[in-house]
């Protein structure tokens, strides 16, 4: 499993190095590869976040679907927020709701919390145990639990496949 973490960190660092230098001459390639290898060996013990990542064709497809769903939700979120902010009466109905998650992997939970933060009217304040605490701008008074569950379920089904 260690090889996987090292190689993932190495690929990310090397790509960032190449983009920042904006050239593919041989000196840059060698020095970049050496530094990236050094850092990825140094940090592979601490870095447990990539251990649960699955590298299969199905995971790739689901990553793509997840990204497109996420981008669409991000755009929708901004239009909802713009409408709320610009309307003179400021129609907000805020509340903090609970939502349970079934994801076990730490990285998957991080991505889930970030995705919820960037989607319409919801923002993760804290994760305690298996429970996410989500602040909503417009929450349905009758069924607060259901509101949180919907926000979580939207992304959870994709992340379950990508991470273990």
């Amino acid at each position: 499993m260690k090889i996987k973490a090292i190689s993932i960190i190495f690929v990310i660092l090397f790509a960032v190095w190449l983009i920042l230098n904006n050239s593919v001459s041989i000196e840059y390639l060698i020095s970049g590869a050496a530094i990236a290898l050094l850092i990825s060996f140094g940090f592979c013990k601490e870095c447990a976040v990539f251990n649960d990542l699955r590298i299969t064709p199905k995971a790739f497809i689901y990553t793509f679907i997840f990204l497109s769903v996420f981008l669409w939700e991000l755009i929708k979120a901004n239009f909802v927020m713009a409408k709320t902010v610009l309307s003179p009466s400021l129609p907000i109905n805020p509340g903090i709701v609970r939502a349970d998650t079934t994801l076990k992997s730490k990285m998957a939970r991080l991505i889930l919390a970030n995705a919820i933060t960037l989607t319409p009217g919801t923002f993760t304040i804290d994760i305690i145990g298996d429970t996410l605490y989500i602040h909503c701008v417009n929450v349905n008074i009758d069924d607060t639990e259901e509101y949180g569950k919907q926000a979580v379920r939207k992304f959870e089904k994709y992340l379950e496949v990508i991470y273990g």
Binding site: P94, G95, I96, V97, D126, I128, Y133, T144
Partner: peptide, 15 residues
């Protein structure tokens, strides 16, 4: 504290 419009605060109850 959240504003008075906030009608449900589960986080405060739990923590």
């Amino acid at each position: 504290l959240p504003s008075e419009k906030t009608h449900t605060n589960k986080l405060k109850e739990d923590t």
